[in-house]
Simulated assay, not measured.
Amino acid sequence: MNRISVCALSLVFTLLAACSDSGGSSTPSSIDFTTFEWTELNDDASWAARAGLHVVELGGRFYLMGGRTPEDSPIPGASTLWADVWASDDDGVSWTRILESDAPGHWPPRAYFQAVTKGSSMYVIGGQDFGIMSNFYNDVWTSEDGVQWTQLTADAGWTPRAGLRAVVFNDEIYIFGGSQFDDGAIIGPGGPPRIYFNDVWKSADGVTWQQLNADAPWEPRAGAVVVVKDGYMVLLGGEDGFLCEPQPDCDPPYFNDVWRSRDGANWELVTASAGWSPRPGHQCAVIYDNIVCFGGFGLPQNPVDVWVSPDGASWEQVSNSPWNAVDPEEVKYDFE
């Protein structure tokens, strides 16, 4: 029995798969993803329900941090912003808060940021707060234990943004895309127009950043996913707007294309339209040498599906029930 853990908002699940072959070990050719099952580990974790959070694994421990909880308020986008850090030593079953949001000496509360691990450290990168006029960040912070944090830079050189994506590739941190300013669907008309990015940057230390491509061939976007597979960074999906009108007959401003790059500067289109519906806020992971994608935001309803691909070009739907969801209202998005 093989275990893969996934954290989704206030729910924590483990994905279980029964896999066997003559040698007793799993190989990609022996995996039948349709046999994978979801098991709920905790239906009410001790941290507040939230979106735009991030979870990383470091040293066998899960660290959950940041995010926002929308408030019932006439103020558009009003939210409780978090800068707390929670740890789990049992694959997400139980959680302990190790850092309060208002603790001094670490990053300000934020959501839709990125967090990665490299070596013995975790890194918090970019993001935004929420208000009548949100602040967007391009700072970088690091910690080895989730409690003691060091600011590596207050200004990484790239435009402050949220909804960006980051991965560690060949021992360097790469960031991709994102957006600045809030969507009119959230804060209403009258604010500055939302700006989307398709630039790519990298850093070996989180302090000094190098721009690799100011205008990548993929459309500017936020809410994409990037995974590392077979010596490539693979970018999947995203959005350049939240809503469309009139629903349900309009085409949402979402993507389901797949691109890949070996260096962040040069990109190859893998497919202009993957089998899954266009979406942002989804999650993808490389599991048993396959890309597995699930969740996300959709119009007129959220997608209830799980898709698998060995190469990013050909896709197979293996489930219509991520984390045992029975309808689109139970599908999660903006979790990482």
Rank of each mutant, 00 (worst) to 15 (best):
R260P: 11
A274Y: 02
N138Y: 06
Y232R: 06
A111I: 00
F169H: 05
D171L: 09
I75R: 07
L299W: 05
E239I: 10
C250S: 11
V225G: 00
C244D: 13
T80N: 14
G206L: 06
N302R: 12
V226Q: 03
Y254R: 02
G241K: 09
T271R: 01
R3S: 12
P310W: 09
D240M: 15
R68H: 12
G119Y: 05
G127E: 02
K202M: 00
E239Y: 08
G127C: 09
T153G: 15
H106R: 07
V318I: 02
S261G: 13
S5A: 09
Q114E: 15
D89G: 15
S79R: 04
V200Y: 01
G77H: 01
I132A: 15
G206C: 12
L9P: 02
L236M: 14
G23C: 10
S22N: 04
A48I: 10
H106S: 07
V6E: 01
F13A: 12
C284M: 06
M122I: 07
Q317E: 03
D129G: 11
G231R: 03
P220Q: 08
Q283R: 14
S319Q: 05
G184M: 07
F181K: 09
G77M: 02
A214K: 04
F113D: 00
P192T: 08
D230S: 14
E100R: 09
G126I: 05
Q148W: 07
T14A: 11
L235F: 01
L299H: 00
W47G: 14
L16T: 05
S10Y: 09
A265Q: 06
A111L: 08
F197V: 08
L11N: 10
G237I: 05
V286G: 11
E219H: 13
L152D: 12
A285E: 01
S29C: 11
G60N: 08
C7F: 13
V326G: 13
W95Q: 12
G52D: 13
P28Q: 08
Q151Y: 05
W201R: 13
A45G: 13
P300H: 08
F294G: 03
Q317K: 04
G264A: 01
G188P: 12
